[in-house]
């Protein structure tokens, strides 16, 4: 087994196990910590796919930013309600059935499709290519993203402000 395959199966195992723990854990706080593990494992998958820049962004924004916001929200809401945030699931059978019904056609489709067996060799610096594409071909969505961030910022402040 090649090094890439060994790394992939190791990461896949961690990713799947932590994802299952996110949706099944009783304690909401544990769920968030497992989500952090899943996000770091995903960054590992990005590294395997030679997207180092995206792995760094994934860890900084997702595992750093999102997890911090969620933990903050849990701490704030827990103090507001004054009880432990235990959580339960409902409709496990129905939810499982729906999920499996979504998964099976995708797996059948993927296994039947003609997919490349080997990755083409990398040409040049991928990070450089991302930067060039971002400011040439995708410059309009890039600028729109700034507007979206402004809207999200204002929206979050509006929702979280104190009532007069």
């Amino acid at each position: 087994m090649s090094l890439e395959a060994a790394g992939f199966w190791g990461l896949a195992l961690v990713l799947l196990a932590s994802s299952l723990a996110v949706v099944l854990s009783r304690n909401l706080f544990h769920s968030v910590l497992y989500l952090a593990l899943a996000l770091v494992a995903t960054a590992g998958v990005f590294l395997l796919l030679q997207a180092e820049f995206l792995a760094a962004v994934q860890i900084l924004l997702y595992a750093g930013g999102v997890i911090t916001i969620v933990v903050f929200a849990i701490v704030v809401t827990e103090r507001l309600v004054g009880e432990r945030l235990t959580q339960t699931n409902r409709g496990m059978v129905t939810g499982g059935l729906v999920s499996v019904t979504v998964l099976i056609p995708i797996v059948i489709f993927v296994t039947r499709a003609k997919l490349p067996r080997t990755a083409p060799p990398l040409v040049g610096d991928l990070t450089q290519a991302i930067g060039r594409e971002l400011l040439t071909r995708f410059v309009l969505p890039f600028e729109l993203l700034a507007v979206l961030f402004l809207a999200a910022l204002l929206g979050a402040i509006f929702f979280a402000r104190k009532e007069e």
Partner: peptide, 17 residues
């Protein structure tokens, strides 16, 4: 991973979940 997430969305009671 996508279907595991879907399962979580369908079955969790907690909004943060």
């Amino acid at each position: 991973v996508f279907t595991i997430g879907l399962f979580g969305v369908l079955t969790r009671r907690n909004a943060i979940g």
